[in-house]
């Protein structure tokens, strides 16, 4: 019986993988668009999602305390719901940017003949864990509300600074260098 279940499981696995493969949306091929998307994802993380002041504002308990002291119950409830909605949207957006970065890595890695199986498996696991963390965080915020993380402002500021450094190095070639543009212009002027 166990043997039968095992073979039926493999059959079902194949059916489902064919189903998903045939329904798969053809993703952007080539590196240029994926690179631009990755650049946008990093920009979004650097300037839109992870700056300490923004994260601090979204999750600030002082705001709620102020509203709780100065407004009636239904306004407090409305405020809490609104903040929760924003917090959830923030996690969703971070998750979406992580997916975009993963796509960027895979888009590049698939061309490397020297790809290492073990490293790729580790990375796949890490990406999956990070995405799972986003899911868990979402569930956490959904259940306990947006005010369960009071120390986030300082720590997120540090993380954002670190991300800034790394992302600038990673995709620097997509940002035109002001110095080289100036040099090009100068050369053009000299020739004319």
């Amino acid at each position: 019986m166990i043997q039968l279940i095992l073979f039926l499981f493999v059959g079902a696995l194949l059916f489902s993988s064919i189903f998903f493969l045939s329904r798969r949306n053809p993703r952007t091929e080539g590196s240029s668009k994926v690179l631009v998307e990755a650049r946008q994802a990093l920009n979004s993380l650097q300037s839109g999602l992870l700056p300490p002041e923004l994260v601090g504002r979204i999750f600030a308990r002082e705001d709620f305390e102020y509203v709780a002291n100065h407004t009636p119950k239904h306004v407090q409830e409305m405020f809490r719901k609104e903040r929760k909605r924003i917090a959830l949207a923030w996690v969703d957006q971070v998750r979406s940017e992580v997916v975009s970065l993963r796509r960027f890595h895979l888009g590049a890695a698939r061309f490397y003949a020297k790809l290492k199986f073990k490293t790729e498996m580790t990375l796949a696991f890490d990406f999956a864990a990070l995405l799972l963390t986003c899911r868990a965080l979402r569930a956490f915020l959904y259940m306990r509300g947006p005010y369960a993380a009071p120390r986030m402002v300082q720590t997120t500021a540090a993380a954002a600074a670190r991300l800034c450094d790394v992302s600038e190095k990673a995709l620097a070639f997509l940002t035109p260098s002001p110095l080289s543009t100036f040099a090009d212009r100068s050369a053009g002027t000299a020739q004319s």
């Binding site: 990093l42 993380l45 992870l50 994260v55 999750f59 971070v94 992580v98 970065l101 890595h105 590049a108 890695a109 490397y112 020297k114 790809l115 290492k116 490293t119 990375l123 890490d126 990406f127 864990a129 990070l130 963390t133 986003c134 868990a136 965080l137 956490f140 369960a148 993380a149 009071p150 120390r151 986030m152 720590t155 997120t156 993380a159 954002a160 670190r162 991300l163 790394v166 992302s167 190095k169 990673a170």
Partner: peptide
């Protein structure tokens, strides 16, 4: 390839730590 992997890992590390710290009460 190592550079590619190191870059991706570094990005993920930063993001993971920031998410972990956000989740920490």
């Amino acid at each position: 390839y190592e550079t590619c992997v190191a870059r991706t890992r570094s990005l993920m590390g930063g993001m993971r730590s920031s998410l972990g710290k956000v989740a920490r009460p």
